[in-house]
Write a protein that binds this DNA or RNA. Structure first.
Length: 588
RNA sequence: CGGGGUAUGGCGCAGGUUGGUAGCGCGUCCGCUUUGGGAGCGGAAGGUCGCCGGUUCAAAUCCGGCUACCCCGACCA
């Protein structure tokens, strides 16, 4: 393949587009790979589409190799399947809905669990047909509240989504492992660095769930990894190691105190350390000794609302995303003025355990952070305005309905697996694998006969790769100040060949000849055969476009050599024209 | 949905307070020169100044309203 820049549908921009912030977005637009059409909606130009198709090809090859079979569902879908799963409603305004001429409801598929499940139900009815893994590479549509960052979060994007169908849990585990392996091969070939993180399985339930995150400053996901072992997790799924129970024989009996002017944890701790009657004998009180009781309203999918109080040590906030991951499919909402009015047991700012719990008078569910183990000693609200209770001991003075992982995760927190500590970083979610289980099969009644002739519900796995997002993730990870740097397999070409001389001189003839030889040798060439364009412009464009190897036919030609530059390292070497093609073909 | 910002040739921007011929750089086209790091000179095309209304002899500029887009947050299988 020889792509000639003299006729290529391409215009590189000398300046950054005003609406692009992230490097991937900026450079993909500047280098002429994509153009914005509407918020979160992009067109692919020739170079960009080549990269996109390379990514797609690699994903497809690895899926096929893993034994999955490719199908293709429509993007335009009727309402019924989503009605059956309940998601026509629960998806809310996150989907694009439309009507046909008769007024019937349609939607642009945001995801295709329903279609996969129903199609398998259509065709299969025996355990002998399973296991089965099928996938598609499809354009998805989501009416994102805020599209951003170019290709990283669009309203139209391409995803590879696959589903596995098994009769039993062991089968699901095998299908899951197969996908995991395929994903590792895929992302390796894409030239991405990534971290496999434990993830929360989200609103759809399920058990095992892992995300492939490409570390990137501008990523939307926060994850942790351990400094001492290979533990890595999305911050939503971080597990807090449970401390040992403490002895509390020496702790004074709980006592309620007037604590005026202590609207914040900080002022409360200050006061507690200042007043002799409140001070701790062994050491100063810290924010971590206070127990903060945060009240939220849970909205269940059926529309009912239920108050929940979450207790966390006072030096931490409740992380709403972590909370949401725990309470799903219910959604936590802010507790409003009206809610407080409806629950007089909750004294704003002074909520304490005595008024809480399913067995208490209020009946309000009370869940505590895992750090709140038996024997821990707290300052917390006394359920009266202006008063706190001191030396309240878990297990002695109060109980909870259970624990919940909702406290924010901090850099330096303990690793749940080893003695190490956690460091935090950000990443782009490029893949997600999880064991969906029987939720969908149950909802859509996908069952098969087992070997005893009994109907059993199929168990499913769900696996996604953001194909268009991966293009941006690669760009985000692989660029420098002056342009993109593509990994070989996704690059729009293997070699960017530049004729650096004057129009009509020997360099053009030599470059032309080289281009032909490269093509014959199976090397993909982007050939800058533009006349009337200075060498400087050609060099700058080649660096912006980011093909990994740049070959310059120019002044060295007099000595029978061409210059071969490595885009990433910047290293250059002179290579005899005669052997240049073999030299290149060997090094690719 | 909350906060901040922007809207002027294809792209990036100035102008606006002080109302009066719409400007700069890049890009594009023509001619000549140039050709290893985003060339020079000369000429040219290209703009309802986001939209609606108001004030005024006169509005890109002042006033009112609207819309779109960008960024941060909330939201996001």
């Amino acid at each position: 393949m020889v792509l000639r820049m003299s006729t290529l549908f391409l215009r590189t921009l000398r300046e950054d587009p005003a609406d692009a912030e992230l490097p991937s977005h900026r450079l993909l637009v500047r280098a002429g790979y994509i153009r914005r059409v509407a918020p979160g909606i992009f067109s692919w130009l020739p170079l960009g589409y080549k990269v996109y198709r390379n990514v797609e090809r690699i994903v497809r090859e690895e899926m096929d190799r893993s034994g999955a079979q490719e199908v293709h569902f429509p993007a335009l879908l009727p309402r019924e399947p989503y009605e059956a799963s309940g998601r026509w409603l629960t998806y809310g305004d996150g989907i694009f809905r439309l009507h046909d001429r008769k007024g019937a409801d349609y939607l642009l598929g945001p995801t295709h669990e329903e279609l996969f499940t129903l199609t398998v139900k259509d065709l299969y009815s025996s355990y002998k047909d399973l296991p089965l893994s099928i996938y598609q590479i499809q354009t998805k549509y989501r009416d994102e509240a805020r599209p951003r960052a170019g290709l990283l979060r669009g309203r139209e994007f391409v995803m590879k989504d696959s589903y596995s169908f098994d009769v039993d849990d062991a089968g699901l585990q095998r299908s899951y492992e197969q996908h995991r392996e395929a994903y590792i091969k895929t992302f390796d070939r894409l030239g991405l660095t990534y971290v496999i993180c434990a993830a929360s399985s989200g609103a759809m339930g399920g058990s095992a769930s892992e995300e492939f995150l490409a570390p990137a400053e501008n990523g939307e996901d926060t994850y942790v990894r351990c400094s001492g072992c290979d533990y890595a997790a999305n911050v939503e799924a971080v597990i807090t190691p449970v401390p040992d129970k403490l002895a509390y024989d020496d702790v004074p009996a709980a006592h309620v105190e007037d604590t005026p002017d202590t609207p914040t944890i900080e002022t409360l701790v200050d006061l507690s350390n200042k007043r002799d009657d409140l001070r701790r004998a062994d050491r100063d009180w810290t924010a971590a000794d206070t127990l903060k009781n945060v009240v939220v309203m849970l909205k269940h999918p059926d529309g009912t609302r239920e108050p929940l109080v979450v207790a966390v040590p006072g030096d931490r906030d409740v992380d709403m995303k972590r909370l949401e991951a725990q309470v799903g499919p219910a959604e936590p909402e802010a507790f409003t003025e009206e809610d407080f009015a409806a629950h007089p047991a909750l004294v704003r700012g002074y909520i304490g355990p005595a008024a809480l719990g399913e067995n208490s008078a209020s009946g309000i569910k009370y869940l505590v952070d895992p750090r709140v183990v038996e024997g821990t000693r707290w300052i917390t609200g006394a359920n009266e305005s202006g008063r706190h209770v001191y030396d309240l001991v878990m297990g002695r003075d109060f109980e909870a309905d259970g624990t919940i992982e909702a406290a924010e995760v901090k850099e330096g927190d303990a690793c749940p697996r080893c003695d190490g500590t956690l460091v935090m970083a950000r990443g782009i979610e490029i893949g997600h694998i999880f064991q969906l289980g029987r939720w969908f099969a149950e909802a859509l009644d996908l069952r098969v006969l087992d070997e005893n002739g009994k109907r059993v519900t199929v168990t499913m796995g769900s696996y996604g790769i953001g194909v268009s997002r991966a293009v941006a993730a690669i760009a985000e990870q692989s660029h420098d100040e002056i342009g993109l740097i593509w990994p070989r397999e996704v690059s729009p070409a293997d070699v960017h060949l530049i004729a650096a001389g004057k129009k009509g001189d020997a360099t053009f003839d030599a470059a032309e000849k080289l281009a032909g030889e490269m093509e014959a040798a199976g090397v993909r060439v982007l050939y800058d055969d533009r006349t009337g364009v200075s060498a400087g412009v050609k060099f700058a464009d080649s660096e912006l476009i980011g093909v990994p190897t740049i070959v310059v036919v120019g002044r060295g030609l007099a000595n029978g050599v061409v210059e071969v530059k490595d885009r990433r390292s910047g290293e250059r070497e002179d290579v005899p024209v005669e052997g240049a093609v073999q030299h290149l073909a060997a090094s690719l």
